[in-house]
Design a binder for these strands. Structure first.
Lengths: 143, 143
DNA sequence: AATATTTAGTTGACAAAAGCAACCAATCGC
DNA sequence: GCGATTGGTTGCTTTTGTCAACTAAATATT
């Protein structure tokens, strides 16, 4: 298949999928958290022994900005900083129970939106959807 | 197929596809334009008889903000406002030749990035990719 | 071991992005 | 004709993000 057609197809997909993602992200807007803050919370949720440095690297945000947001999280009792014995410049960041619950809520929230999105689909269609998504991931993750 | 599995699959896809989109958008960051400005330029490119109102509605941005960005575009000779004879509150927005070329450049730029992305793929794989993308669009655009 | 360099994180100052509300002028509904 | 609505502008504010200078700890260099 030709590159030009493929490119056009990908452009179209991106356009339409951006709309889908907008639908799913919507609820975040209603919360007190910015997109960046939400991304950080997700990261903290999935990386149990996270550090500020790791956030900076994986999310590619300014370290000063990260530092400030973490301080805000701390004030709000969403995270705790645990001094690392290895390296005294660093500390380990953990979600508090409150913080963990909050992230879980965020996740549930998007899950509900996703559920709405796939509600019209039959079992077979859902399977097809998953297959298509996995196929795309496999093809593009060749890197 | 079960909803829970499907949801997990979609979450994974979103995560990985966000990275892909990040790669494609990257170049925008290097330009003088913000994400919103770029979206507006794209919209102006594809909607020949656009108005400020239309931008506000389709992109869901504050009208004051849109007004300011349009003024900036006008200063930079990227657009022209043509008084509408129908409704004197409104004006039609057109990209100037300069503006049009600029958007074309932006598009070429992402196209090149997309080309890099699919470079490792065989002709068959490209076809599969397109099929998978179209399948997803069809399934999710049921609305 | 002393010194230089790099690294993790903080802070202050600032710029860019976005939102809000008041406002003006044209249009619509009646 | 007149009030209500609409498209757009403007001033003001908040939110979001960047940059550079700085501290303290860790690593590398000699």
């Amino acid at each position: 298949m030709g590159d030009q057609l493929t490119i056009a197809c990908i452009r179209e997909f991106n356009r339409s999928y951006t709309i889908v993602q907008g639908l799913l992200d919507r609820k975040f807007m209603d919360t007190v958290f910015s997109v960046t803050e939400t991304r950080m919370l997700y990261e903290l949720y999935s990386l149990p022994h996270c550090t500020a440095k790791l956030l900076v690297e994986t999310l590619r945000i300014d370290k000063g900005y990260v530092s400030r947001i973490l301080k805000k999280f701390e004030r709000n009792k969403l995270i705790e900083k645990a001094a690392s014995s290895q390296d005294k410049r660093t500390y380990e960041i953990r979600l508090t129970p409150v913080g963990g619950n909050l992230v879980a809520d965020l996740i549930n929230n998007t899950n509900e939106r996703i559920a709405e999105l796939i509600a019209p689909l039959s079992s077979n269609e859902k399977e097809e959807l998953c297959e298509a998504m996995n196929r795309i991931r496999n093809l593009l993750e060749k890197e």
